[in-house]
Design a binder for these strands. Structure first.
Lengths: 97, 97
DNA sequence: TCTAAATATCGGAATTTCCCGATATACCAA
DNA sequence: TTGGTATATCGGGAAATTCCGATATTTAGA
């Protein structure tokens, strides 16, 4: 758990938005674009309004920080939150930092 | 509470160290360099091993993010943690982000 | 006053981040 | 195979951050 990597990943408006969207995908994405593994990149990109490459990099960054997980299904990659990482971060701030 | 400002402030090794030192000043600073208002800039600078201007700027940044508070006493400025901000951030990550 | 000490602010070089377009890779379907 | 779709990676210009030295400000004390 690299604290600085995590905080850097959280230091961007779009990346924070993505995390919010992935917290309640049923609110933000149509059923056909999400499943138990999360939401595919293209739909996240569409909502973000940035280029595909940028959004893909952002998702990779969030993944490296451990905040989200990826599952490849055919040509799609589904991303979902790693809630344990958020719980751990919350506890870290509550008691360690 | 500007989330991004907070996460940016936390995205730096030295600033995280300063927050750790201020969490338990009695461990890291001699009694004559601390009081109920916190620890003075010079002592924080000494521990950080960076220039006075850099450390002063870092403290200003942490203060703008709401993570620490400043009290001027004579020629000294004492900085201490704002624990409520950390509690609020912990809750934010636990339930909102 | 005048000087010295503590801190804050300014200007800038080096590095990193932001976000793009172009290109590469992976997979599916015909 | 071949072409099309989804995603990842690369190269780079613009903007932000890092950290410095120099300078300004604030306050105490002679």
């Amino acid at each position: 758990m690299d604290q600085i990597e995590i905080f850097k990943a959280l230091s961007n408006k779009t990346r924070l938005q993505i995390l919010t969207w992935l917290k309640n995908p049923e609110i933000y994405f149509a059923p056909e674009h999400r499943n138990a593994d999360g939401v595919c990149v293209g739909m996240i990109q569409e909502k973000a309004g940035l280029t595909q490459s940028t959004v893909s990099e952002y998702l990779t960054m969030l993944k490296k920080a451990g905040l989200i997980e990826a599952t490849r299904v055919g040509q799609w990659t589904y991303y979902k939150r790693n809630e344990e990482a958020f719980a751990a971060l919350s506890k870290l701030i509550e008691s360690e930092i």
